[in-house]
Write a protein that binds this DNA or RNA. Sequence first.
DNA 1: TTTGCCGGGGA
DNA 2: TCCCCGGCAAA
Length: 468
Amino acid sequence: MASVLSRRLGKRSLLGARVLGPSASDAPSGITPPLEPLLEGAPPRPFLTSEDTSCQEQPKEVLKAPSTAGLQQVAFQPGQKVHVWHRAQECTGLVEQHSWTEDQVTVWLLDQKLQISCRAEEVWLADPQGPAPQAPAPALGAQALAYRPVSRNIDVPKRKSDAVEMDEMMAAMVLTSLSCSPVVQSPPGAEANFSAARAACDPWKESGDVSDSGSSTTSGHWSGSSGVSTPSPPHPQASPKYLGDAFGSPQTDHGFETDPDPFLLDEPAPRKRKNSVKVMYKCLWPNCGKVVRSIVGIKRHIKALHLGPREGFQGRGLLRTPPGIPGHGRKDALVHAAAVDGLPSGALSKSAPGSFWHIQADHAYQALPSFQVPVSPHIYTSVSWAAAPSTACSLSPVRSRSLSFSEPQQPPPAMKSHLIVTSPPRAQSSARKARGEAKKCRKVYGIEHRDQWCTACRWKKACQRFLD
DNA sequence: TTTGCCGGGGA
DNA sequence: TCCCCGGCAAA
């Protein structure tokens, strides 16, 4: 079935595979016309040579039927054996009544001992000689139609709205079965369609935040960041490269050329499809790489394998471990793990918004800053490695590295935390320090409150309160 | 133009 | 050592 479908899809575009009832305008040019020669030209076919009068009559009736707006109808006789599409499967039954005016056929289902009433279009006469037809309209190809002359005249005609709706649902089911992830089904940028997928990926928003988007100093990342600072969704097929293709260029299809979808393996991809990628979650913990199919699974994996309950908590403490010492690599992974845990990133820095953590004396222009987490009207957190209490004896007067968390009060998820690991300590050169992005005393307090500035700022030195 | 801050110098 | 400021560079 799948191969038939895919083959059909291969020959037609998705639009061509449209299984909805054709509209009035395309009914004459759609599937119906090729059928008429079949009926009239009468090449020797079992159903046409059949003695079953119903099978012979019905096509004629169809042809004779007044085709107002292209609608063709069949009169079913009580007691006729018919096939009916019921609850997504074909059933055999006997016609009990055909209400021509309401276009309703009451059918007694032999299989299910059930009487149903359905539309005449959904009923076709049983062919005593041919094989039982497969699913009607949605997935039938010309082959199927070829041996079911009556039904094809029933299936194809223009439907009324409710029938169209039903077929749309059927079509959606078929298409859905051929596709995989809702994430990639939706065109990039169609945010509204992303809600379900995003809901499932919400924890990744946070984990994506803490992924290092630009630094080359970290490893063990969870999400394959593509270099932009937006959070990365879990990457399909667990390949960062693949991710880059799939998400890095959302306007094009080429990321799916190597679609490993088993549905398409046995045929040349007739059309590049965007909706055949499974979402997998890969643990990027160093030397792990475990691929899990669900986010719950990956969480469990992280907790179980990489995060002991104790280690996890200590790992967060590692945030204040200066880089370069053993464990720095773990730090990032633990950051990710913490994010996966769903803990607010604020917990990582002991700086709940509103708290003021100011360990450093303001007069520290000459001295190294210790550990400084000022929270001003703008919630702001800054941690200096060189000044971490555990490594208080930094000999370098240069702020070698700094890690800063910039936390607006109610940040959007993508902005919830911001991790910057700056470049390694530059040589003690006279190169001007790159201007930081952090707010400085001047900006925070304003020039009119210069007395509230840190000393360094007042002296036009590098600000020691709002470190970069 | 504003801002951050280095380098230099005066008290 | 404290303090101030000229001036450069980045935003």
